[in-house]
Design a binder for these strands. Structure first.
Lengths: 339, 339
DNA sequence: TTGAAAGCGATACCAT
DNA sequence: ATGGTATCGCTTTCAA
C-alpha cells in the first residue's frame, strides 16, 4: 500500500499538498494537482483507515440511537448487538446517546430527533411510518447528519441507508413453506399486528402471492392483534371459531404471537394446525418446543444492529459510504434443530 | 476512553513505563507497576485499536491461505469473501499469500505448510483429515503462527480457532425438515461424498438421529458419490433401482449432488422424491428451480471467509483473541423464495 | 529502572 | 499556493 508520504516524495511536494489535492481542498497549482492525482490513481492509493480513525478521534463524534423498542421482544437482540458495537467502537472514541421509548408516538419521536440533532453527527432510527418523521429525517440529513433507518425504512426520505428485513420476501417464504408442509394446508388464517404497519402489510402481500401458486389454497381470514397478546388471544379464539375450515396460520406479527398460540392451544389440543411465525423470541421458542409453531422465520436481529453501527463508524471515522443503500437481511427458516 | 498518555500523567510516570507494565515487559518498580495496573483497571483502560494497527503496519505481517478448494463449487463464495477481506485489510498493510490446490493430497498440503511457515505470522487452512497435517499445524503453532482452520476442523491440533459449519446439526436439521414435509417420506436414501470425510459422517449421524424420531422411518440405503457427478449419477441410478421404496433423498455431499439429481430426473419424471441438499451452488440452484430439490441447507460460505480473515486481523493487528475458539455457522433452510 | 523521542498514516493549522 | 509541524494512541529504541 502506498502512503501519502510516499506519494509526496514521488511528486516532489509536501504531504500537506497531497492531502489538499486528494481531498479537494483547493489552493493547489493545477499542474501539480494533476500530477498528484495521476500518481495516486496509478499506484492505487487508498488511505489507511487506522490513520483516519486516529484523526477522527479528535472530533468527539457521537451517534444517536432512537427506537420505540421498549417492550418489543424482537428488539432485544438488536439492542444487544448495538450495545456490543457501542463497546467496540468506544475504543476508537465513538460516543452513543440512546433514546429508547415505548409505543409509536410521532410527537415523541419527533421531539427526540429535534433534541439530539445539535449534538450528534449520525442517527440510527427505527422510524415511525409518518410524513412528519420523514420531514425530521430530511432535516437531519440536510444538517449533515448521517442517517441509518433500522428495521423499518423511510423510503421517501433522504436517509443514507436502510438496514432491515425484506418483509415481502418474508411473506413469500412463509407461503412457499406452507406449500411444502405435511398436511398440505389450504385454508389460511393470517394475523397481523396492524395494517398501519408497512412491514406487516408487505408480509401479507408476499404471503398472498406465494399462496396463489398452491392449487385450491385460499386466505380464509385476516385479523389484527395490535401486537398485543391479550388481543391476539381473544381475536384468534373468535376467528378460529368462526372459521373452522382454517388448517394453517401465518403469524405476520411477532407482538401478539404468543397470545395467538395460547388461543390455538385452547381450541386445538391436537396440534392439527400448521403455524409459521416470525422471530426466535423466547415465547415463540417456547411454542416451537411445544410443537404448536412448526417453523419460524428468522431475520438476523443481531446482524441488523451490528451492521447499522458499522455503517455509522465507517462513515464517521473512515469517510467510507457503502455502495448500496439497502442492507437487506435474508429470511431464514428455523426449525427446532437449527434454532 | 482513557489513553496511555492520560494514564501516564495520572500516575506521574512516562508513557513508556505504562506500556511496559501493561504489556508485562518487566523492568518496572513493583510499586509503580501496581499503581499503574490499578488505575488502568479502575478507569477501564483499553487500547485504541487504531493506534495498534498503525504500529503493526511496520511489521510487514502476512497470512497464508491454504485450501484444496479448486474445482469445489462450495468454496467459490468462501474464496470470494477471503479476497474481499484481503482488499479490506490490505489497507492496513496485511499481506496474503495463496495456496489453492486441487485434490486431497496430504503430501502436497504438508509441503505447502512447510514452505510458508517461515514467511507468515498467520495461517488459514482447510485441513485434510490426517494426523500428518495435525502435526504440521502444531509445528506452526509452536513457532508462534496464528492458525485458523476453515470449513473443516482439526480438533486434535492446537489450532487457535475453527470457522465452519456444524455438520451434525446440518444432518439433524435435514432430518427434522424431512419429518415435516408433505408426502411424509419414510424411506430415506443418503448420498455421501465419502465416509473418509469427517463432516459427511457427522451429517449422516445427525440425520439418523433426527430420523429416529419419525415413526416408521428408516434409512433404506447409504451410498458414496466420491464428490463426483458422474459417479453420483451412476450410483444413484443403481441404488434407486435396487430400492424402489425410497421416497426421499438426503444429499450429504455437495460434490456429486448434480449427478445424483440427474439420475433422479431420469428415473422419476414425476418429482415424487423429496430431496434435501447442501449449499446454494449454481447446479443446486438449477435443480431447485426445476423442483427436483425441495430445500437446501445453507452454511454461510461468505461469512466463513470473512470471519476467518477477521480473526487473523484482530490477532495480528490488535492482539485480540476471540473468547471462543469455535465459530460455528448456523444451518439455514433455503427454499426458492429465500435463496 | 526510567524517560525522552521517533515513527506508523492522515490531517489541521500556521507561517511563509 | 506551499511546506513545516503538531497531533491522534501506541510501541520501540536509545540514552541516561
Amino acid at each position: 500500500m502506498v502512503t501519502i508520504k510516499q506519494l509526496a516524495e514521488l511528486c516532489g511536494v509536501s504531504r500537506g499538498t497531497v492531502d489538499r489535492v486528494l481531498n479537494n481542498r483547493g489552493k493547489v497549482n493545477p499542474e501539480k494537482a494533476e500530477l498528484i492525482r495521476r500518481t495516486a490513481e496509478r499506484l492505487n492509493y487508498q488511505p489507511n483507515p487506522a490513520g483516519k480513525a486516529l484523526i477522527a478521534r479528535r472530533k468527539n463524534l457521537t451517534v444517536a440511537i432512537v427506537m420505540p423498542s421498549v417492550g418489543i421482544a424482537f428488539f432485544d437482540d438488536v439492542i444487544a448487538a448495538l450495545k456490543q458495537a457501542e463497546q467496540k467502537y468506544a475504543l476508537f472514541g465513538l460516543k452513543v446517546v440512546w433514546r429508547l421509548s415505548r409505543g409509536y408516538d410521532v410527537a415523541v419521536q419527533a421531539a427526540a430527533i429535534d433534541e439530539l440533532a445539535d449534538e450528534v453527527q449520525a442517527l440510527i432510527i427505527n422510524p415511525i411510518d409518518d410524513p412528519h418523521i420523514v420531514e425530521k429525517i430530511n432535516g437531519c440529513v440536510s444538517r449533515g447528519i448521517f442517517v441509518v433507518t433500522l428495521n423499518n425504512d423511510a423510503p421517501q426520505s433522504k436517509r443514507h441507508a436502510y438496514v432491515g428485513p425484506d418483509y415481502r420476501s418474508g411473506g413469500e417464504t412463509a407461503g412457499e413453506l406452507m406449500s411444502i408442509l405435511a398436511g398440505e394446508p389450504k385454508n389460511f388464517g393470517v394475523t397481523l399486528g396492524s395494517r398501519q404497519i408497512l412491514g406487516h402489510r408487505l408480509r401479507l402481500e408476499g404471503f398472498v402471492r406465494a399462496i396463489q401458486k398452491i392449487p385450491g389454497a385460499r386466505i380464509a381470514a385476516v385479523w389484527e392483534d395490535g401486537d398485543d397478546d391479550i388481543q391476539g388471544y381473544e381475536t384468534t379464539k373468535t376467528m378460529l371459531t368462526q372459521h373452522p375450515e382454517i388448517d394453517a396460520l401465518f403469524l405476520a406479527s411477532s407482538g401478539g404471537a404468543y397470545g395467538t398460540c395460547r388461543a390455538v392451544r385452547a381450541l386445538h389440543a391436537e396440534n392439527d394446525l400448521r403455524i409459521v411465525a416470525f422471530d426466535t423470541t423466547p415465547p415463540i421458542v417456547e411454542m416451537m418446543k411445544a410443537h404448536v409453531i412448526d417453523a419460524v422465520l428468522y431475520q438476523h436481529p443481531h446482524t441488523q444492529g451490528t451492521r447499522a453501527m458499522q455503517l455509522v463508524y465507517d462513515y464517521l471515522f473512515n469517510g467510507i459510504e457503502s455502495d448500496h443503500d439497502q442492507h437487506i437481511m435474508q429470511n431464514e427458516i428455523r426449525l427446532l434443530a437449527n434454532l
